[in-house]
């Protein structure tokens, strides 16, 4: 498969990354070289192969339902880009 400018625009939008026009051209070349490299996978027959998400066959541990975390607000707010009255501030969200 190959990626074109429109695909790049779409995935850049999904990933919320701004890409300038001059970047976009070189990006197309580089992404396509990566895509053609990973396309080597398509040569392999994987019928009846179970997909592997984890290295070892283990199951999810469960945590007791206890409150263990304390209020770290003062540290958290100190390093936040914009805060008013202990609330993080961002440009207006339009629903």
């Amino acid at each position: 498969m190959t990626i074109n400018q429109k695909d790049i625009e779409k995935i850049a939008h999904l990933a919320r990354i701004n890409i300038s026009e001059e970047e976009s051209a070189t990006l197309e070349v580089k992404l396509n070289s990566i895509i053609s490299m990973i396309d080597k996978m398509q040569e392999v027959n994987t019928d009846n192969v179970e997909p592997m998400s984890h290295a070892l066959e283990v199951t999810q541990p469960l945590r007791e339902d206890k409150v263990t975390e304390s209020d770290i607000r003062s540290d958290a707010l100190k390093i936040a880009p914009e805060v008013v009255d202990s609330i993080f501030i961002v440009p207006q969200v339009i629903e």
Partner: peptide, 8 residues
């Protein structure tokens, strides 16, 4: 909270 902005 702030005019024209959203709080989280």
């Amino acid at each position: 909270i702030v005019q024209g902005k959203t709080g989280i």
